[in-house]
Amino acid sequence: NITNLCPFDEVFNATRFASVYAWNRKRISNCVADYSVLYNFAPFFAFKCYGVSPTKLNDLCFTNVYADSFVIRGNEVSQIAPGQTGNIADYNYKLPDDFTGCVIAWNSNKLDSKVGGNYNYLYRLFRKSNLKPFERDISTEIYQAGNKPCNGVAGFNCYFPLRSYGFRPTYGVGHQPYRVVVLSFELLHAPATVCGPKKST
């Protein structure tokens, strides 16, 4: 009989979020998941679920829940969905086509923008091939755009693969920082350890 609540607040209220190319993952297990707390949290810009209804989450049990978190621009949030393409979905964070879970995003301009620009948040701009679902690539190898080998030196046709967002408070909404948490639900042939409040007695 599990009684402790799942530590969703640790994920959602973290002081610093990860850059999207180096997205953070927390495994959540052996706890009671009260999703209504999240669902009623006012400032969400997006709360979209795939393969599961957000209002039914509290009735369900899962083997594991993974909480992935990172920061992207407002106009990139739409790429955090199954079957998407674009710089983020291709080179930074890719969801599987059969994704079961929820994508939760909110504007973090007050936290993550600075006058003069916040350059701490990076994304991958160049990559030889697209990421596989949930693949994480933190390499900083110089990207070779031409035929000539770069030998690890940036220059003509040789690019550092990461780019900084440089968030400023005055940017338009599409270019403002958004914090994103992706909850993915794993249902294995194993005992369920993460259940909603109704199922955990």
Rank of each mutant, 00 (worst) to 15 (best):
C49K: 00
A81G: 07
H175V: 07
N75D: 15
G155Y: 06
Y171Q: 15
I138Y: 08
K26C: 06
E135N: 05
V20S: 04
F41N: 11
C6K: 03
S29H: 13
N151Y: 10
T15K: 11
T170G: 15
R73K: 12
A105N: 04
S164C: 07
P161D: 06
D90Q: 10
L122P: 01
R27Y: 08
T170I: 07
S69G: 01
Y123I: 03
T170E: 15
S139T: 13
N1V: 07
Y143N: 08
P96K: 04
Y159Q: 13
N109I: 06
S19M: 02
Y119A: 15
D9W: 09
Q84V: 09
A192H: 14
L183W: 00
H175G: 11
R27H: 11
V71W: 01
Y165R: 04
N130D: 10
A190M: 11
F70E: 03
R124D: 05
A42V: 10
Y159T: 15
E186S: 11
R127Y: 03
I88Y: 01
P43C: 05
V77M: 07
Y165G: 04
E141L: 08
R163I: 09
F17I: 03
T15G: 05
Y178K: 02
Q84N: 05
P161T: 07
I28K: 01
K132Q: 11
N130Y: 10
L95N: 00
N147H: 13
V52I: 12
Y119W: 10
R168K: 14
F185A: 02
K199A: 15
K26M: 09
N109K: 09
L57C: 03
K199F: 14
G196K: 10
F47Y: 07
S129E: 15
N151R: 12
L111D: 14
S108T: 08
Q176Y: 01
N92Q: 02
A192Y: 14
H189Q: 13
P7K: 12
N109Q: 10
N87L: 14
F126S: 15
N120I: 07
V173H: 11
S139N: 11
Y178S: 04
F134A: 08
T55Q: 14
L38F: 07
Y93A: 01
T100Y: 11
D137R: 00
L57F: 06
F156L: 13
P96F: 00
A22V: 04
A42N: 07
T100K: 12
F156P: 15
K110V: 09
E76G: 01
Y93S: 02
T63S: 12
I104P: 00
I142Y: 11
K94S: 06
T140W: 07
P43L: 05
Y119C: 09
N87T: 14
E141H: 11
D68G: 01
S129H: 12
N13E: 04
S69P: 00
W106K: 02
F160H: 15
R124H: 03
W23A: 04
G116A: 11
C61F: 06
Y119D: 15
T170Y: 10
Y50H: 03
C49Y: 00
V194M: 10
I104C: 05
K56P: 03
K114S: 12
I88K: 02
E135I: 03
F126G: 15
F99I: 01
V20P: 08
L57V: 05
P149C: 09
E10F: 03
N130I: 13
G86Q: 02
L60M: 15
F12L: 08
S184W: 13
V77D: 02
P54N: 07
L122W: 12
V77L: 15
V173F: 10
I80L: 05
A154F: 10
R27S: 08
G86I: 06
L60Y: 15
H189R: 13
N107R: 06
D9F: 11
S139H: 08
V37W: 12
G196V: 10
C195S: 11
N4R: 13
L125P: 15
N107I: 04
Y143H: 13
N147I: 11
Y93R: 02
A22N: 13
V180N: 00
G86F: 04
S53N: 15
K56M: 12
I142Q: 08
F160C: 11
A46Q: 15
R124E: 04
N157Y: 08
A89F: 01
N40D: 11
N92D: 02
D9C: 05
A192N: 12
R163H: 12
D59I: 03
K94Y: 00
P149D: 14
T55C: 08
D34E: 05
N109G: 07
L125G: 15
F185N: 02
P161S: 07
R163C: 09
R124N: 04
V52S: 02
F44C: 07
S108P: 03
P96Y: 00
C61Y: 07
Y165E: 05
F126Q: 15
F126H: 15
S129T: 15
N58R: 09
I80P: 01
E141T: 12
D112R: 00
P191L: 04
L5H: 10
N30W: 04
L187P: 09
F12P: 00
E186D: 12
I72Q: 01
V153M: 13
V115S: 14
L131Y: 02
Q144G: 09
I28N: 03
S184E: 04
D59E: 15
W23I: 01
D68V: 01
V103I: 07
T63M: 07
S113C: 07
N130M: 10
A192R: 12
V20H: 03
R127Q: 04
L122T: 15
C195R: 08
K114H: 12
A42S: 08
D34Q: 04
G196P: 13
H189V: 09
V173S: 13
K56G: 10
I72W: 00
T63R: 11
V115I: 13
Y159C: 12
V181C: 04
P82V: 02
R16A: 11
F70W: 01
